[in-house]
Each structure stands twice: as C-alpha cells, then as structure tokens.
Design a protein around this nucleic acid. Sequence first.
DNA 1: CCATGTTTGACAACGATTCTCATTGCGAGT
DNA 2: ACTCGCAATGAGAATCGTTGTCAAACATGG
Lengths: 136, 136
Amino acid sequence: MTNTDQPTDQAGLRPTKQRLAVASALAETEGFQSAQEIHDLLGRRGDSVGLATVYRTLQRLAEAGDVDMMRTEDGEAIYRRCSDSHHHHLVCRTCGRTVEVEGPAVERWTSAMAAEHGYADVSHTLEIFGTCRDCQ
Amino acid sequence: MTNTDQPTDQAGLRPTKQRLAVASALAETEGFQSAQEIHDLLGRRGDSVGLATVYRTLQRLAEAGDVDMMRTEDGEAIYRRCSDSHHHHLVCRTCGRTVEVEGPAVERWTSAMAAEHGYADVSHTLEIFGTCRDCQ
DNA sequence: CCATGTTTGACAACGATTCTCATTGCGAGT
DNA sequence: ACTCGCAATGAGAATCGTTGTCAAACATGG
Ligand SMILES: [Zn+2]
Ligand SMILES: [Zn+2]
Ligand SMILES: [Zn+2]
Ligand SMILES: [Zn+2]
C-alpha cells in the first residue's frame, strides 16, 4: 500500500529499486527505526535489500536531510522520515511516539549562548523525552 | 599531581584503587574523553586499570550523575567531569573545548512543549556545537 | 547496443562495548 | 588479626552495529 509515486527527491541519486524500497519503508512507518529493523521489514515484505545498502541509503538520506537520525541511549542510530524544516523531537520513553516541535525560543537561546562565548558557525541537537498521555 | 584527597562521593561504591584512578583521570582532564582514552592515560601513567573496569566505572559514575556522558557523531561514548547542577554543553567542533551553559529559558521551553502535547515526567538533552574563537 | 561510471550484495573486517568467570580484595563481624 | 561472604577486577572471548572490499549487475547517455 501507500505507493511512492512521488519523485521522493533523492538529491542526485539514482532512483534504484533498493533506494525506493528503503524510502517506502520509511514512508509507511511513523516512528524511529534502526537500519536493521528496516532491513528486516523489507525482507519480510519481499523487497529484499542488502543490509549494507540499507545502511548506505540511510546515511545518504540523513546527510541530505530527508530523514532525521538520532541515537538511542546505547548509541544505535535510528532513522525517521520528517519534515524538512529545522525542528526537534519529543519522544515517548515507553512507546516511542514522537512529536516534532519547534520554536524560535531555543534557536535564539542557543545562538545567544554561543555568541556570548565566542563560538561561531553554530548548530545544536535537542531531544525531549517523556511519557505520553497513553503510556502514563 | 592534583591529589584527590576529597571523598569524591562514589555513591555507595567501594573506593577501590581502580575507581580512584579513573576518578583522578577525570579530575585532571578538562575535556571529554572516551573510555579507551582514559584507559590509555592510566596505563601510561602507571596506574594500570583493566579496560572492562574503566567501562564499568564510567557507567556507574554517569548513572550517579558524577560525570557527563555524551556521544560523538559516530556513536562513541565520551565522558567528562562536571558540576552537579543541570546544564548543557557548548562544544568546539575542532578542538573540543567545552563550556557549560545553563539558563531557565530552555528549561521552560522544553517543559512547555512537553506539557502542550501531554507528555509527563520530562527530561531532555541539548548540545550546542560551534567553532571556538581560537579555531576560527 | 556499447561504454562507463554507479550501485549492489555477500562476506570479511572493525571497533566499541559487554560478558564470562576464575581470582582478588574489602570490610563487617568475631 | 582472622575469616567468611560478597563486591570488584582483569584477561580474553563474545556481541553487535557499522563499515570496507570487490566482483558482478545496472542505469544511462551516446
Ligand atoms: Zn524530525
Ligand atoms: Zn507513549
Ligand atoms: Zn576550538
Ligand atoms: Zn536543560
């Protein structure tokens, strides 16, 4: 289901069967998934794709900003499709439900802090964790 | 030098020679270090401590909140002694120089976002990266 | 169809972290 | 000080996510 007829803008990469498969796996899943989970999902679904290819594709997508990459508590990389504007995540510690949040407040604060200490070319990472309504 | 005569509050853990060695390695270093770097440092210095022990000790200290743990871009865990109050880090992408920053603004913002979406029991992680004055 | 640069996949190689388990060292109680 | 019980250690093996290798399969422009 949920065909990916749209171009999916893969930033100058060939739209190969494998890359489309990974893209669709991301498209039809709401939360964050590890490369291996995506690999398993594709295998189970029939569109088998090599594990190395899944890793490569996810890296490319993350670099291009087409997906968000964050790390679990134990360092594993997990990915999720997301809007292309800068934003942060509010993640449920129990079920993983994720909400994208944004606002000028943090952006301003981080810039101010950096400027105050003479740091240039600033970026930041911010993740909020909590227990969502359904899991309380 | 810089003896660690203070109790170093190891949260109910036996103050063994090894744990004290790790604590002192953290005490005399300013920036973030990986477990392996600490292990090497101790070896070079004579207070040889098993690698597994270094890992175990750092985990305990991190859980107890006596040191900060964050992850490098590629998922490696790095540790640094730090003040015990809640704060965030402003890290130089080039030389690693780190400044601890804090302020009620972000704390309020994250709480507000979480509340707005019905998330309870909230915590967050925030790291700011930039290029420090000396590295520009 | 052909030449040429991409992409893929099976598998090996890596590197950080964790596990195993026999040995050692505290430390409370005597 | 002596002893018992259990926490702590260390050497090495084992995990496991991730990356490297490289020959074979492909996509694309001419
Ligand atoms: Zn996102
Ligand atoms: Zn939840
Ligand atoms: Zn610097
Ligand atoms: Zn904070």
